[in-house]
Computed example of a mutant assay.
Amino acid sequence: MENLKYSLSSLQEKAKERTVKTQSIEYDIETLIKKIERGIIKLDPDYQRRHRWDEKTSSRLIESLILNIPIPTIYISQDVDVDSETEEFRFSVIDGQQRLTAMFNYLKNKFALIGLEALEELNGCYYKDLPPFLVRRLEERSVKCLRIDSTIDSQVKFDIFERLNSGSVKLEAQELRNAVFSGKFNELCKRLCTNSNFRTLLQIDPAYPDENNRVKKMEDVEIVLRFFTLINNNYENYKKSKDRGFTDFLSETMKNYATINDIELAILKEKFEVTFEIINRDFGPTAFAKFKNDQGKLKLQSKYNVAVFDALAISCHDLIFNENIKEFSSHKEDFANLFLQEQFYESISGSYLDITKLKYRIEKVKEILR
């Protein structure tokens, strides 16, 4: 208690800085849809998270709205920019993007209701098929929104996402970063994850990328971010502590590149594309596969492993651009034989984010690829 008394002023200042200013508002669904159409409410799934609700989940929400069953509050952030014609503030969705997308898609006749139990007679009905009294009920249904002051620090905004992250579909770390650290670098990461060599190496079917769980949860974008975080020997700067883990290390990269210019962006893009083109060319589509020692022979455990990704992708980049080594095919067998070594296998297994393991696996691969 004595220590607390001496730090009261500091505590009061911190509490003041991190207090979030909010305002409750209610919109009927018809108004919400119009605001989304006009871009007043930004509902591009690329901004926040990739839409992951299936039509059954979306249908149950519509059923709840028709029956006037309460739904969770939508959290929105008032952006700084103002619409020059209407002078209306623009809003970004902090929590509730899945719900708003389901409402918007249904009122735009993008799916028919399925899996309803209370109103099973409506199964198979598009919005245009609803009787007029249900159309009115749905359009006039009010939805509670909580507007959050846009001037808050990005880290506070990140905290809000995490504290609201209690829904049935968990927000992943990269989905949080995507919403909090929007900007040119974030957009670059999202574009690069569609690179054909990258997708091949991550075992993402180019014909059906949206069906892959890594894509649904934005793990592919996080892996791009992981690449940019660890290259140029930056893995040596990773220092895990009680309050700081690898997730924070990745978020620091987003912060550091927040003001990146177009020339720097172009350089990052080129280095990424060249690196994965060479890896695919010299090691093949299963370059990031994990093997184990089975009585002196290699036994495949998985076709993609993120720790193997660290070891090979970061090594190749640093050797290509820092040591001017552009060809690795002659070392393909040497790389494969690393999996027969107990210490290397341990470095890609278990608590693979251990600092010692992270450094060891990257430096060991650099050693054999030189």
Rank of each mutant, 00 (worst) to 15 (best):
residue 336 A to I: 04
residue 289 A to R: 04
residue 305 N to H: 14
residue 308 V to F: 03
residue 321 F to W: 04
residue 295 Q to K: 15
residue 294 D to M: 10
residue 331 H to I: 02
residue 284 G to V: 10
residue 291 F to H: 14
residue 291 F to A: 04
residue 311 A to N: 02
residue 324 N to P: 01
residue 334 D to K: 05
residue 284 G to S: 03
residue 308 V to T: 06
residue 317 H to M: 05
residue 314 I to C: 07
residue 284 G to L: 05
residue 330 S to N: 13
residue 301 Q to E: 15
residue 326 K to Y: 12
residue 314 I to M: 00
residue 284 G to P: 12
residue 330 S to W: 00
residue 309 F to Y: 15
residue 299 K to Q: 08
residue 317 H to P: 05
residue 327 E to H: 14
residue 317 H to I: 02
residue 320 I to F: 09
residue 319 L to I: 04
residue 277 E to V: 03
residue 306 V to K: 13
residue 283 F to S: 09
residue 284 G to M: 11
residue 295 Q to R: 12
residue 331 H to A: 12
residue 324 N to L: 05
residue 304 Y to P: 00
residue 333 E to H: 04
residue 289 A to E: 01
residue 332 K to R: 13
residue 319 L to R: 02
residue 302 S to Y: 06
residue 318 D to K: 07
residue 293 N to V: 07
residue 332 K to N: 13
residue 323 E to P: 01
residue 320 I to D: 02
residue 288 F to C: 01
residue 294 D to I: 03
residue 295 Q to H: 15
residue 297 K to I: 00
residue 327 E to C: 15
residue 290 K to S: 06
residue 281 R to K: 15
residue 313 A to L: 01
residue 282 D to N: 13
residue 281 R to W: 07
residue 280 N to Y: 14
residue 327 E to F: 14
residue 303 K to L: 09
residue 325 I to W: 07
residue 310 D to N: 08
residue 291 F to V: 06
residue 298 L to W: 00
residue 320 I to S: 11
residue 306 V to D: 03
residue 295 Q to Y: 15
residue 310 D to I: 05
residue 296 G to L: 07
residue 283 F to E: 02
residue 334 D to G: 06
residue 312 L to M: 08
residue 296 G to H: 05
residue 282 D to C: 04
residue 298 L to H: 03
residue 307 A to Q: 03
residue 298 L to M: 01
residue 333 E to V: 13
residue 313 A to G: 08
residue 321 F to A: 11
residue 336 A to D: 03
residue 309 F to D: 02
residue 306 V to A: 08
residue 310 D to L: 07
residue 277 E to W: 04
residue 303 K to N: 15
residue 284 G to N: 10
residue 277 E to A: 14
residue 329 S to E: 14
residue 284 G to F: 14
residue 320 I to N: 01
residue 318 D to W: 09
residue 312 L to A: 09
residue 288 F to E: 09
residue 329 S to F: 11
residue 313 A to V: 03
residue 283 F to T: 05
residue 331 H to D: 10
